[in-house]
């Protein structure tokens, strides 16, 4: 597998710069599906620019965490960005076990946001935080089962090698398992990023929100931090799914770079299409759904184990 660190750095830069564009792609797709013209693709950038120029309104109830949370969330994501193998090039920051660090950094960001939300003393934000904490705790098991599957399929413990290893193309069950696991990763991505059908990022009613209800009291640069972090997280998780499906030995790095960018935007189109055609699930059904995802991830693992006769060489 030819390695070219230049493309990894290019991928990192793309993640940092193009993450809001992915949101634009999703919104545009949604608009196209329902026959509207929709906002410009660059609208998220305009929003961020506007927010960073504004001042801030703070609730008098807050005793501090509300102000700290956006910075912590953004820091966690800026660190998490370092561990993905963009364009299937090994990350220079990779170490054995960075998959866990990646997952727990996302957890840190979530913890900060939840504490920030509860700092306002608002019942709506409390409700959002309560839901977020429930669903994220249950997603965690599925996420680790997927990581376990990747570790077993690639015989490695760092995220770079897990996601960039060549597919053993001669074993159909493994390919089936990879697709299954990528499907689970896609579901985890939808839950973690609060997309339809698990949460509706554009609902107008606080009672039906999860993530959006937690950030009701942010404004100005704080809200900008949170929106940018959310875009970055969406980009990262979509990249994770795309990289799972892209075998490392498919093409030279330059082509892989283009392919992974295209794959991410295609992911955006898929998310947009799902949002346009489906409605949000009932909250009460979500835990069952998440446990189902965990079981499916375990099935994927079992398929790999059986398909490779207990171990890949």
């Amino acid at each position: 597998m030819p390695q070219n660190p230049f493309f990894w750095w290019a991928g990192l830069l793309a993640a940092l710069l193009l993450a809001p564009l992915l949101l634009g792609v999703i919104n545009k797709t949604k608009a196209c599906f329902v026959g509207r013209q929709g906002p410009s693709l660059l609208q998220p950038y305009y929003n961020l620019h506007k927010l960073f120029r504004r001042g801030c309104i703070r609730t008098t109830v807050s005793c501090g965490p509300l102000a700290w949370a956006p910075g912590i969330e953004l820091s966690a994501l800026l660190l998490a960005v370092l561990f993905l193998p963009y364009a299937n090039q090994l990350s220079p920051f990779a170490f054995a076990g960075d998959a866990f660090f990646f997952a727990y950094l996302l957890g840190l960001g979530r913890f900060a946001l939840i504490i920030g939300a509860l700092d306002t003393g608002s019942s709506f934000e409390g409700m959002g935080a309560s839901r977020e904490v429930q669903f994220s705790a249950l997603t965690e098991g599925a996420l680790f089962a997927v990581i376990g599957f990747l570790a077993f399929a690639s015989r490695s413990l760092n995220l770079s090698e897990m996601l960039s290893c060549p597919l053993p193309s001669n074993i159909p069950t493994v390919i089936a398992a990879v697709i299954l696991a990528a499907g689970i990763a896609f579901i985890i991505m939808l839950v973690e990023n609060c997309r339809v059908p698990f949460d509706d990022p554009e609902t107008h009613l606080e009672l039906t929100m999860i993530h959006e209800a937690m950030i009701l009291d942010y404004s100005g640069p704080d809200l900008g931090f949170i929106l940018y972090s959310a875009a970055l997280k969406l980009w990262l998780m979509t990249a994770l799914v795309v990289l799972m499906l892209l075998p490392g030995d498919l093409a030279p790095p330059g082509v892989l770079f283009i392919l992974h960018l295209l794959g991410i935007f295609l992911g955006g189109v898929v998310i947009g299409a799902i949002e346009a055609v489906s409605a949000r699930f009932r909250f009460l059904k979500l835990p069952q759904f998440l446990l189902g995802a965990l079981c499916t991830a375990l099935i994927a693992l079992a398929l790999t184990v059986i398909g490779t006769g207990g171990g890949l060489q």
Partner: peptide
């Protein structure tokens, strides 16, 4: 960034 801007306080948003 904020030290140059107006910083208002208000009550918590409760719908």
């Amino acid at each position: 960034q904020l030290s140059r801007k107006t910083l208002d306080t208000g009550c918590t948003w409760d719908c």
